[in-house]
């Protein structure tokens, strides 16, 4: 399993803040593709990904147990 976290507009589109997904092996790009297929109404073009609370590239390997956050453009301050 991997644990997915959604925020801001993506959280509203998904209708949930987090969910778990069965997982064996793959990359961040694979997880992103899953999310794009699952939530086609959301524009993922500017979304960054974080694995275990650090930003990663799409080539990052994803292991079972990882915590993966989709980070839309931030707007703190």
């Amino acid at each position: 399993m991997i644990h997915l976290y959604y925020f801001a507009g993506l959280k509203e589109t998904a209708g949930k803040a987090e969910e778990s997904l069965p997982w064996e092996a793959g990359t961040a790009a694979d997880v992103l593709q899953w999310a794009k297929n699952t939530y086609p109404a959301f524009d993922f073009s500017a979304v960054q990904m974080a694995v275990n609370e650090e930003y990663v590239l799409e080539t990052e390997p994803i292991k079972p147990g990882d915590h993966i956050a989709f980070i839309p453009p931030v707007s703190g301050g």
């Binding site: 073009s45 500017a46 839309p72 931030v74 707007s75």
Partner: peptide, 27 residues
């Protein structure tokens, strides 16, 4: 510090107006 917060810290702001609302963040 404030410039970096606006670039990299995962915090989001939603503006709520009289006639609508929107998550702010560039798109």
């Amino acid at each position: 510090a404030i410039e970096q917060i606006k670039k990299v810290v995962p915090i989001w702001k939603k503006e709520i107006w009289e006639d609508g609302e929107e998550w702010i963040g560039g798109q």
